[in-house]
Computed example of a mutant assay.
Amino acid sequence: MARTQGFDRDTVVRAARTLFWTTSYESASIPELEAATGLSRSSIYNAFGSKRGLFDAAVENYLDEVVRPRLQPLKADVVAPEAILDYLRGLHGAFLTLSSMPASNGCLLINAAGAPIARDPQVSRVIADYRTELHDAIARGVRAQPDSRGAAEQSRLADTVTNLVVAAFALARIDSAEAARSIETAVGIVTVAADVVG
């Protein structure tokens, strides 16, 4: 007879996600994961195979519940002209709200990119894919604006905005106000570019 889980997997993964996000994969100890999730070491290993398996589940949950909902308007079949500015202003507000996870902890995946776990090829691929997904969504938002910029200029603008967003997430843990300023710069660039050709 198969053994049934005596816990809610999503709740456990979210709790682990918060711990990994606020500390790091390396710094999150098994006792801390036990305390955060309410599971014993053996239950964590039975359910996820390892600490790394739990981290992988937390990353997938982060993408599905935190990243992709915010990007959804930029990935819609028809992207509204204001979607890119709405996305950036939403991030700006998050960075200015000191109690928010982005303001106090940046981005789980950008944080992982600067940690030893990023040397793992699978984790490295997930981080690279996340950056590509972010860039593609921003590029769609740039292209949705009603202007006459050429493809090359739109591509440069998408690259610049993506890099400013990544920089903001990297800065957030040490200076959320500076992270917010990075997003203000992105808003300014998008707005100026639209005004120039409008």
Results as ranks from 00 to 15, higher is better:
residue 92 H to P: 03
residue 111 N to L: 05
residue 103 A to I: 10
residue 107 C to H: 14
residue 109 L to K: 04
residue 116 P to S: 11
residue 109 L to G: 04
residue 117 I to A: 02
residue 112 A to S: 13
residue 95 F to Y: 13
residue 106 G to S: 09
residue 108 L to P: 05
residue 113 A to M: 03
residue 118 A to F: 03
residue 101 M to S: 10
residue 97 T to W: 06
residue 100 S to V: 12
residue 102 P to K: 09
residue 101 M to C: 07
residue 114 G to P: 01
residue 97 T to D: 14
residue 105 N to R: 13
residue 102 P to C: 10
residue 110 I to A: 12
residue 120 D to V: 06
residue 110 I to W: 12
residue 91 L to P: 02
residue 93 G to F: 00
residue 95 F to Q: 08
residue 114 G to R: 04
residue 115 A to Y: 09
residue 97 T to I: 02
residue 106 G to L: 08
residue 95 F to W: 09
residue 118 A to L: 01
residue 115 A to V: 03
residue 111 N to H: 09
residue 102 P to L: 03
residue 99 S to P: 02
residue 98 L to G: 15
residue 95 F to R: 05
residue 90 G to Q: 08
residue 119 R to M: 06
residue 100 S to F: 12
residue 120 D to W: 03
residue 113 A to T: 10
residue 106 G to D: 05
residue 91 L to D: 00
residue 115 A to P: 01
residue 116 P to Y: 09
residue 106 G to M: 06
residue 120 D to K: 04
residue 100 S to E: 13
residue 117 I to P: 00
residue 114 G to H: 09
residue 119 R to V: 06
residue 94 A to H: 10
residue 92 H to E: 14
residue 101 M to W: 08
residue 93 G to M: 07
residue 119 R to C: 02
residue 120 D to F: 01
residue 105 N to F: 14
residue 94 A to F: 09
residue 113 A to H: 05
residue 108 L to W: 02
residue 108 L to I: 12
residue 94 A to N: 12
residue 108 L to K: 08
residue 115 A to M: 07
residue 98 L to V: 13
residue 111 N to I: 01
residue 119 R to N: 11
residue 120 D to C: 03
residue 91 L to H: 14
residue 108 L to C: 04
residue 100 S to G: 10
residue 96 L to S: 06
residue 100 S to L: 06
residue 107 C to E: 05
residue 117 I to C: 00
residue 117 I to G: 00
residue 99 S to K: 09
residue 120 D to E: 07
residue 114 G to K: 05
residue 93 G to Q: 11
residue 112 A to M: 07
residue 105 N to S: 15
residue 112 A to F: 11
residue 103 A to C: 03
residue 105 N to T: 14
residue 94 A to P: 03
residue 117 I to R: 00
residue 112 A to L: 05
residue 112 A to K: 00
residue 95 F to P: 06
residue 119 R to T: 11
residue 91 L to K: 03
residue 101 M to A: 14
residue 114 G to Q: 04
